[in-house]
Computed example of a mutant assay.
Amino acid sequence: MQALGLTPEDGPFAVAVSGGVDSMALALLAADYAPVLALTVDHGLRSESRDEALRVQTFLRRRGIPHRILTLSPRDWPQGHGSLEARARLARYAALEGAAAAAGIRHLLLAHTLEDQAETVLLRLLAGSGLEGLAAMAASAPPLVLPDGPMRHRPLLAIPRACLQPVVVRAGWEPVADPMNRDPRFARVAVRQWLAQAPGGRQAVRRISTVARKLARAQAALDREIDCHLARAVRLQEAGYAWLDSRPLLAAEEELRLRAFARLVQHLGGAAFAPREKALTRLLAMLGRADFAGATLAGVWLQPGKAGVLLCREPAAVSPA
């Protein structure tokens, strides 16, 4: 926790607890460090999930750790064409961030481990991700869903899963065994099973995670350059819209151009993820033409004007007051 710049005075902390080894170990360790509120999300996908969440609650409350169950159903999940895993993940983060914010908690702890980091690198490599994706998970990151939600922290990101087993054994916890975590039809499970048999074993996991750390450093350097380009090309307004001078943006190197434009659109549109590269490339090409008459992308409306290109959230994407 201290390595992430978090002190006991920053508490209480919210902790996401599924009942598996990693999350239960994190809850127990964090509770020894500062006050915590444990949160278990019941996705409602299995008939046993409610009883498992209640078992987690009983165990933690007996140890004096406050706990809440956040019950979801598929109708709570974001609509779209994402996979079951992706949609469930967004719904889970929305519930966790919302519960933490409602409790006045500014920091959410997540139990991702060294193995989770290596799996994420491989998944994103298979998906054709670029630098940002292959940098994988950050030890600390802004909220994923709610703009005013808690910061997300991963204190165990450099810790192998095997190091956490003794924590739950000493506490007398029998981990929840979710059969979905063993179903190879899910991409992460398939990668996890492959990685467990990969040449080099644990050393391979460490090396892949080291690659992510190096790429994260490169991403941070690129982010600073993107900030400079946006400062030259964009004038953000307090009312939530922006004026864009497309000339310096279009004159930038392709990678900087794409990333700066993606960040601007994502920020104004309030989306959890940046637009696809294909859509960004097409719209940037349109911006470079003298006959550009306007467009929309990822919930953002673009319209040429005397002061440049106006970007604002399109009416359909604005929440009613």
Rank of each mutant, 00 (worst) to 15 (best):
L134K: 05
V41T: 00
L108Y: 11
R55L: 13
G128Y: 00
A231F: 06
P78T: 10
Q219S: 03
A321G: 00
A127G: 01
E253V: 04
A231D: 15
G20R: 04
R276V: 06
R217V: 12
S140L: 10
L72K: 04
H107R: 15
H112A: 05
R161G: 01
P304E: 13
V191A: 06
P78M: 08
L195K: 02
S49G: 15
T40Q: 01
A279R: 13
R213S: 04
A14K: 13
E174W: 04
P320N: 09
A251W: 15
A231Y: 08
V205Q: 02
H43T: 08
A298Y: 06
A279K: 10
S23C: 07
A307L: 08
G104P: 14
I105D: 03
A216G: 08
L28T: 05
V189G: 14
W173Q: 08
E253D: 13
P199A: 09
P304V: 12
V265L: 06
E277D: 10
K214W: 12
W77G: 03
A260L: 06
Q303W: 13
F261M: 12
A233I: 13
E277V: 02
E174P: 01
T40K: 01
L310R: 15
E85Y: 12
T120Q: 03
D245R: 06
A252K: 05
R55I: 14
L256P: 04
A102P: 00
A94H: 05
A136M: 15
E48H: 15
N181D: 12
A34V: 12
L108N: 05
P315R: 11
A127W: 02
T120A: 07
A94N: 02
A293V: 00
I208W: 11
L195C: 06
T58V: 11
E238A: 15
A220T: 12
P12N: 10
S23Y: 11
A190T: 02
L249V: 11
A293Y: 01
K306P: 14
A272R: 02
M24C: 04
E238F: 12
P143T: 00
A118E: 08
A252S: 14
A95T: 12
P150V: 04
Q57Y: 09
G44C: 06
G98T: 02
Q57V: 13
R92S: 09
D32M: 00
E132W: 14
E253L: 09
Q57G: 15
Q2K: 07
R106Q: 14
V36C: 14
F292H: 12
P175A: 14
R263I: 05
V168K: 03
L280D: 11
P74H: 03
E9T: 08
A86G: 13
V234E: 10
R89G: 10
L287M: 12
G11A: 07
V168D: 03
R92C: 05
E225P: 04
L123P: 00
A190K: 10
G305E: 04
L109Y: 10
L26D: 02
A187C: 10
L156M: 04
R259I: 08
R124V: 02
M180G: 07
L157Q: 06
R124S: 06
I65F: 09
R257E: 04
W194F: 12
A293K: 01
Q193C: 00
I69M: 05
S140A: 10
T40A: 00
L45A: 13
R50V: 11
V205T: 10
